[in-house]
Structure formats: structure tokens, C-alpha cells
Simulated assay, not measured.
Amino acid sequence: MVPFLLLVLLNMGTSQGQLQVGFYATSCPNVEAIVGGVVREAAASDQNTAAVLLRLHFHDCFVEGCDGSILIDSGAERDEKNAFGHQGVRGFDIVERAKAELEALCPRTVSCADIVALAAREALLLAKGSSYEVEMGRRDGVVSSVDSADNMPDVSDSVETLKTKFLQKGLTHKDLVVLSAAHSIGTTACFFMNDRLYNFPADGGSDPSINPAFLPELKSTCPRNGDINVRLPIDRGSEQVFDSQILQNIRKGFAVLQSDAALYQDESTKAVVDSYFADLFRPSFEADFADSMVRMGRIGVLTGLQGTIRRSCASFD
């Protein structure tokens, strides 16, 4: 395990050294303004835009690395975007609109992978979340396979499995907690709730970690044999603003997703959750989230002469 982890960290170190803030300062100086404008326009007609773009960035980075592989749409069933672990992922059209504007101004210059990373930051700002400088210089991948997404973190994963999956990407248990807090905004479908409410592995009933006062509310929204496509906020009481309320909900048994609730059932991740509510020496949740986003954005990046710069994000051309 140690040699494998060392290799992962060395690979990350080699790649991240070539990413830099202001990468397009000369070649395409308006890139941030253009992507920001497209994101704001999208958000004006869809209040879930921020959550959508944060999720897209996460799903891109956790497969082949932050290389835009999830964006490929050749029409084939084998395209990565069709993986079971990517179901419900959206935002492809927003990235494509930004890419079209950038191609008109700076042809074959800005990678789709960088647009995804930048769009996530812009989306976070719209949700009153953390601000951070986006390192850029990623190049687009030339592989997109549904099989590559087999090991995506899943809402039904145990906390040990989640920690392992994050560790394999060079991220810590603290990153797991902090990045899970992206669930502060957005919704989920009853499809992801049924087992937790009606067929929890322990006894075939409901997950005992759900606060008894919250259980009737969840069952009312997602009744047994009801419409699995009905959606509910992931962060009860604060679903439109990016803040640490999701962590308070986890502490009190009001977590909607099983993977979020699991964070309070492991000593190492529980300690991270509790640290943001300590009376003394409380860390900044906003600053930690920004740091974790930057680290996530370095996973498996292609730089220099690696990969390519696509003309269209949905195509390898």
C-alpha cells in the first residue's frame, strides 16, 4: 500500500507543478470572464446550476483525472458519461457553450478540462461559497470509457470504502468530509433513498442513524413504491446557500444521503466534522473547502504535450 500511495502522490506532484494560476493570461486573457458569464446566464434559468457544475467537476476528476473525459459524447454506449456512477450528472451544455465562445476568441487554446474546473468555481461563488484561484493548464484526455467509472464513490459506500477511494486519488479523510459538504447545495432523487428508508442492510428496515424526527419527513417525500424520480434537498433547511449547515445536519442525524451520514460513524471523519463547531481553534470551513477543491483539481491532470485541446468538448477532434 505504501509504495502505491507514494507513486500516486509523486504523480500528483509531477502534474500539479505544471498547473498555474493565470495560465491563459497572455493566450486568452478573458477566459475567466467568459466562463463566468456563461455560468451566470445558465444559473438565471436553473437554480441548481451551482450544484450541477460542482458535481460535474467532481465526477470528471474521479475517473481518468481532471481531463474532460466525462464530456465526450460520441453517441456510443461505451462513452464514460453513460456509466452507472455518472447517472444524473448534468452541465455538459453549459461547458459546451463556454467552449464555443472561447473557440471564437481563442481557437484551440483553452481545454475543456480547465473550463469544467473554472465553471465549478464560478458556480460556487453564485451559491455564496468559497472563493479561490483556479490553477489551469490542464489538457484534455483522449480516452473516455464507461468502464473507467466503475470505482466512483457511491452513496451506499461504507466510510472505509470512501476513505480508500479518496486515498487512491491522493486525498485525505479530511478532504472526504470537506468535499462531501458540496452536498450543501442541490437535490437528490428518491431512487438513492429507497434502500436507506425501507431496506437498510442491518434489518431490512430504516437506517437507524436517521433522526426519528426526520424519518417521517423523508418517508413522506419518498414513500415505499413511490416515484423514484421525485427530488428532495440534500441539505435540509439550507439547500440554496453553500455553508456548513450540511455538517451540522450530519451531526444531528438529519443527513439525507447515506454516505454523508456515514461520516459521523467513523472516528477520524467524525472528528473533522466536529472540528468546525469547536468552541476553540475552529478551522475555517470555507478556506478548507477551497483548499480541497484545488487539490481535487490536480488529480491525474495532463499538462504540457500530454493530451490535446479539443475544438468541441463532446468530441475528441
Rank of each mutant, 00 (worst) to 15 (best):
residue 2 V to N: 13
residue 4 F to A: 13
residue 11 N to M: 11
residue 12 M to Q: 15
residue 13 G to M: 13
residue 13 G to K: 12
residue 14 T to E: 15
residue 15 S to I: 01
residue 17 G to W: 13
residue 20 Q to Y: 07
residue 21 V to D: 14
residue 26 T to I: 12
residue 27 S to Q: 15
residue 29 P to C: 05
residue 30 N to Y: 03
residue 30 N to R: 11
residue 31 V to M: 11
residue 32 E to F: 05
residue 32 E to V: 13
residue 36 G to M: 08
residue 39 V to N: 08
residue 40 R to T: 00
residue 44 A to H: 07
residue 47 Q to I: 03
residue 50 A to C: 05
residue 51 A to W: 02
residue 52 V to F: 13
residue 55 R to E: 15
residue 57 H to R: 13
residue 69 S to G: 11
residue 69 S to E: 03
residue 76 A to K: 14
residue 78 R to M: 04
residue 81 K to L: 10
residue 83 A to G: 01
residue 92 F to I: 00
residue 93 D to P: 02
residue 95 V to T: 09
residue 96 E to Y: 05
residue 98 A to M: 12
residue 98 A to Q: 11
residue 98 A to L: 09
residue 98 A to W: 09
residue 98 A to R: 08
residue 101 E to N: 07
residue 101 E to P: 04
residue 103 E to K: 08
residue 104 A to H: 15
residue 105 L to H: 03
residue 107 P to G: 02
residue 109 T to M: 08
residue 110 V to C: 01
residue 111 S to K: 04
residue 111 S to T: 04
residue 116 V to W: 11
residue 118 L to I: 01
residue 123 A to T: 04
residue 125 L to C: 06
residue 126 L to P: 10
residue 131 S to C: 02
residue 134 V to E: 06
residue 135 E to D: 08
residue 142 V to I: 11
residue 148 S to R: 13
residue 149 A to L: 08
residue 150 D to I: 11
residue 154 D to Y: 10
residue 155 V to N: 15
residue 156 S to I: 10
residue 157 D to A: 06
residue 158 S to E: 01
residue 159 V to A: 09
residue 160 E to W: 02
residue 164 T to E: 14
residue 165 K to Q: 06
residue 167 L to I: 02
residue 169 K to V: 00
residue 169 K to W: 00
residue 170 G to M: 04
residue 174 K to V: 10
residue 175 D to A: 09
residue 178 V to H: 03
residue 179 L to E: 05
residue 179 L to C: 03
residue 180 S to M: 12
residue 181 A to E: 04
residue 185 I to H: 08
residue 186 G to R: 05
residue 191 F to V: 00
residue 191 F to P: 01
residue 195 D to G: 12
residue 196 R to C: 01
residue 198 Y to A: 04
residue 200 F to E: 07
residue 201 P to Q: 00
residue 202 A to W: 08
residue 203 D to A: 12
residue 204 G to V: 09
residue 204 G to R: 11
residue 207 D to W: 02
residue 210 I to A: 02
residue 220 S to P: 12
residue 221 T to G: 13
residue 223 P to L: 03
residue 226 G to R: 08
residue 228 I to T: 12
residue 232 L to S: 03
residue 233 P to G: 02
residue 233 P to N: 04
residue 234 I to C: 13
residue 234 I to F: 06
residue 235 D to T: 06
residue 241 V to E: 03
residue 243 D to M: 06
residue 243 D to H: 10
residue 245 Q to A: 07
residue 247 L to K: 01
residue 248 Q to F: 06
residue 252 K to A: 12
residue 259 S to F: 10
residue 262 A to L: 07
residue 263 L to P: 13
residue 263 L to C: 06
residue 265 Q to T: 06
residue 268 S to P: 08
residue 275 S to H: 06
residue 279 D to Y: 09
residue 279 D to A: 15
residue 280 L to D: 15
residue 284 S to M: 00
residue 288 D to F: 01
residue 296 M to E: 14
residue 300 G to R: 05
residue 303 T to Q: 12
residue 307 G to R: 10
residue 308 T to Y: 06
residue 310 R to Y: 07
residue 313 C to A: 09
residue 314 A to E: 13
